[in-house]
Design a protein around this nucleic acid. Structure first.
Lengths: 147, 147
DNA sequence: TACAGATAGTAAGTATACTGTCAATATGAA
DNA sequence: TTCATATTGACAGTATACTTACTATCTGTA
């Protein structure tokens, strides 16, 4: 009999859903969802990326990124600007409001992490992070020093 | 600077997405998705549950379960039968085809697990399972011996 | 230069997953 | 028995996340 309750896939789905829900609750006041937060977080690291670059960095489908950006733009946190070299592409740039929220939202993420991992100690969280990164699998390397 | 790349939430999302994609690939020939497989797996354990019972066992929203059942019914793997005691409810019952597929699909799930966890040894997988179950958090107890 | 093929973004379609609302039906207390 | 309340499933709406197909544009090559 297949033990669905203890299968890695099922447990991953449920752990992910819980993490999503907890994070959602923390950032709810700002009218954001966890994937929208993640996209902002990539822009805090490097502003002005194109949609494809965001898609690759975040391992999110191109068309999904388009929708996320639509909603974040509607929310006034970022804007599509013309790309100076490529008329097909946009540069996705944070607005002042999008930049300002970094501190507040990072704090939400910290609280969220604490709530989700309250049943694990620091070493376990570290180990979990390591194992999830392995599960995540092969990522293309984007910023390879030209080889 | 918030490190989204190494946040548990982000890694959970990516590990989950990978597990989903790999499992999808394995069961693709049977026109199933991972959540549909999970629902079948609960029915292999106990046939004839109602939608609410499936929703609770699988920690899936009631309306999501409805859609999953729609698609599995359309696919001929289960059927809604009248509930003998409750005219509001259905008993969700596997068809012969739904029962027959248990062996084949369980094998797909095994292959999928091996592919996903190929970077981890058996002890690590066990530890991962334990930690994900903790992350998953408090579950209501459904089959409590009446207290 | 011209053109074949690649790339950026959009759009439509499908499948989760949630929220809220509703009608039909059950249930328990007065 | 009656009536307030709860439960079951459906439906509509929103947000991911993917696929395929399409347009516009760019790029490398002949």
């Amino acid at each position: 009999m297949y033990d669905i309750e203890n299968s890695i896939g099922f447990l991953l789905a449920k752990a992910y859903q819980r993490a999503w829900a907890v994070m959602k609750e923390e950032i709810e006041p700002y009218d954001l969802t966890p994937p929208q937060f993640a996209l902002l977080a990539f822009l805090w690291q490097q502003d002005g990326l194109t949609q494809v670059e965001l898609s690759e960095k975040g391992q999110i489908d191109r068309s999904t990124v388009g929708g996320l950006i639509d909603r974040l733009e509607r929310n006034g946190l970022l804007e599509r600007r013309q790309h100076p070299q490529d008329r097909r592409a946009y540069r996705i740039c944070l607005t002042e409001q999008g930049k300002t929220l970094e501190k507040t939202l990072s704090a939400c993420a910290e609280r969220s992490l604490k709530r989700i991992t309250s049943g694990l100690n620091d070493d376990e969280v570290k180990e979990l992070r390591r194992m999830l990164d392995i599960l995540r699998g092969e990522r293309r390397v984007y910023e390879l020093p030209s080889c």
